[in-house]
């Protein structure tokens, strides 16, 4: 073995195996301490809250299931909104990359308008103002539409940057092989752009989970709405908001975990 030969020829002060073992030990020490601190902080937070005497565990157990039942609705909102947002962002990015001034202006206007106004205003507008123009939507589709259009605007810019990040030489090589412009885009540029933007889409999705709480304003029976209803009914908003916060937090942790794995898999792939 090369390593063995090396250490035979040039004796060092330490055996290579010992150095490796020390490295491993220090990595493990880091991990363990890291986990201990996390656990400590969580327990500390829980104990701290309990010591205030304002938290009633029995009440939490009582209203917990009702609030948790909002999770599927929250996830439904997020998944449908992000899907629709991806479609909108694809169209938007095509517009922003287009040489056609009309399409480009429309896409640019869309991005500017929806990024330039508060999400809350947009959500209320979809539900409360659109009916004035004859478009009456239920709370759930109105909320999904508002989130999707808003995120679609942000993701338009992400998708556009993704396409622009594909090295120029890729297009040139494809063209030099005689491919038509549409083939160059479809077969060479977009597949690579998709890989580039996947981590960013993951981030948007995680952000969406938290922003989806805003549709409680429309009375959609998702996590925050249920927490608010219970909190107001029993005048115990501390507990119900805590439950809601924990639900969102856990959802984002789970999703971050999947996102990290996806990213690692794509990094291992082919670049």
């Amino acid at each position: 073995m090369a390593v063995g030969e090396l250490s035979e020829k040039r004796p060092t002060r330490y055996e290579i195996e010992d150095v490796e073992a020390a490295d491993r030990r220090s990595r493990w020490r880091f991990r363990i301490l890291f986990a201990v601190v996390w656990l400590g902080l969580i327990i500390g937070l829980a104990v701290g809250l309990a010591l205030t005497g304002r938290i009633d565990p029995a009440f939490i157990l009582e209203v917990g299931p009702f609030i948790l039942d909002g999770t599927p609705t929250t996830l439904l909102i997020c998944f449908s909104s992000i899907l629709l947002a991806c479609v909108l962002a694809t169209l938007g990015a095509l517009g922003r990359l287009s040489g056609n001034p009309v399409l480009n202006a429309i896409a640019s206007f869309y991005v500017s308008l929806l990024r330039g106004t508060p999400l809350v205003v947009q959500i209320l507008f979809w539900y409360l103002a659109l009916p004035q123009f004859g478009v009456v939507l239920d709370a759930l589709p109105a909320g999904i539409g508002a989130l999707a259009f808003n995120y679609g605007a942000y993701m338009t810019e992400i998708f556009r940057a993704g396409v622009e990040a594909v090295p120029r030489g890729q297009q040139e090589a494809a063209r030099a092989l005689g491919m038509r412009e549409s083939e160059v885009m479809r077969r060479i540029v977009f597949p690579q752009a998709l890989r580039i933007v996947t981590p960013a889409i993951g981030n948007e999705f995680i952000a969406m989970i938290k922003d989806s709480a805003l549709v409680y304003l429309l009375g959609v029976r998702e996590v925050l709405w249920r927490a608010d209803v219970m909190g107001t009914r029993f005048f115990r908003s501390t507990e119900t908001l805590l439950i809601a916060a924990v639900v969102y937090w856990i959802l984002t942790i789970v999703l971050s975990f999947f996102q990290e794995r996806l990213e690692r898999r794509m990094a291992r792939g082919d670049r």
Binding site: P167, G169, Q170, A174, M179, R187
Partner: peptide
């Protein structure tokens, strides 16, 4: 054309790189 930076398509295997244009173009 051959380029200084090769410009193989990174999302395709070698053989896919080779047959992409012959089949499509």
């Amino acid at each position: 054309m051959l380029f200084q930076e090769f410009n193989l398509f990174p999302h395709m295997s070698v053989v896919q790189n080779l047959i992409e244009a012959p089949t499509r173009v």
